[in-house]
């Protein structure tokens, strides 16, 4: 017995063998050079503009803003990408694709920009990883098959798991030391010792505000807060995905009335011709003028 239903799916697609071969070529051309690199380039830019400094510098990773801001910003793009891959292809890897893509972009930046060009040590500019959170999000969508349940449970776990999954990467930097009689964490000292001419210390936002007043459990309170906002952001960006990802045709029916059809896969098929009584979407008596136009909102 086969592991996957691939044969059944291919049979159901009613594509001839050449069509199947071509579709795999399209998969390769579309997925890697276009979808993957497109996502990592744009998501990287999006993330760096909104939460860049928190991810660049080790002395920005505080218990409040880093924990709050990073999941909120990192859930946005996956929301839209997940909509697209799930709605049109039932592929549950939108979040993982986005966030591994983001990390590919980040590591290119770390090696070429921060280490090779600007000469900062890599540990000083080590980014956080949310791949584990992305996997949890994708698995939730796959298992619940509901974007609403994914928004409630998956995104909640996405934000809540951010700190524990990154603690092994950054815990060493929270060890205390004494410099000139002042207590600092190693991260503070690294931020001080590596001179950043254009990034003075006051730009950091370290535990400003009242979130930390609840019994000192700053990280978890921040994570809860972040989870709620992330749910909202995921929902909004899922709808953004819906808005920019929809595809439809304006078709002209039997009586020459124009209407919008979302059934894009059927246009041009025998079924379409049978249903509408027109071959290839061309209305009778409408020769010489275009009656089928691709469009999107």
């Amino acid at each position: 017995m086969a592991l996957f239903r691939t044969k059944e799916i291919i049979a159901a697609s009613k594509l001839p063998p050449e069509g199947v071969k071509l579709s795999r070529m399209i998969d390769a051309i579309y997925f890697l050079p276009i979808a993957y690199f497109g996502v990592f380039a744009t998501f990287h830019m999006h993330f760096d503009l909104l939460a860049g400094d928190w991810d660049f510098w080790i002395d920005w990773k505080d218990r409040q803003f880093w924990v709050t801001v990073t999941p909120i910003v990192e859930v946005m793009y996956p929301g839209a990408i997940m909509y697209y891959f799930w709605t049109f292809y039932r592929q549950p890897f939108g979040a993982t694709l986005s966030i591994t893509g983001l990390l590919v972009g980040k590591w290119i930046t770390i090696i070429l920009a921060w280490y090779w060009w600007a000469n900062f040590p890599m540990n000083f500019v080590m980014p956080a990883s949310m791949v584990s959170s992305a996997l949890i999000l994708d698995c939730t969508l796959l298992l619940t098959r509901s974007w609403m349940l994914t928004a409630i449970f998956g995104v909640w776990a996405f934000a809540m798991m951010f700190n524990p999954s990154n603690y092994p990467i950054f815990a060493y930097s929270k060890q205390p030391l004494v410099a000139d009689g002042a207590l600092l964490s190693l991260a503070d000292y690294m931020g001080f010792t590596y001179v950043r001419t254009g990034t003075p210390e006051y730009i950091r936002i370290i535990e400003v505000g009242s979130l930390r007043t609840f019994g000192g459990h700053t990280v978890w309170i921040s994570a809860f807060f972040s989870a709620f906002i992330s749910m909202l952001m995921f929902t909004i960006w899922w709808q953004v995905g819906h808005f920019v990802g929809q595809s439809f045709f304006w078709a002209t029916g039997k009586r020459g009335v124009k209407y919008r059809t979302n059934d894009v896969m059927i246009v041009g098929t025998d079924e379409y011709a049978q249903r509408h009584g027109t071959p290839n979407g061309i209305a009778p008596g409408a020769s010489g003028r275009a009656t089928l136009a691709e469009g999107k909102s």
Partner: peptide, 30 residues
């Protein structure tokens, strides 16, 4: 940790990449 999580992430994507990904699934879904 980056390599571990990145590896798992790519493994997850590869799980779906080894099968038809887009056109065929879209046709079936319709």
């Amino acid at each position: 940790w980056h390599i571990l999580w990145g590896g798992l992430g790519f493994l997850w994507i590869a799980w779906f990449m080894i099968r038809p990904m887009f056109l065929i699934r879209a046709r079936v879904l319709a």
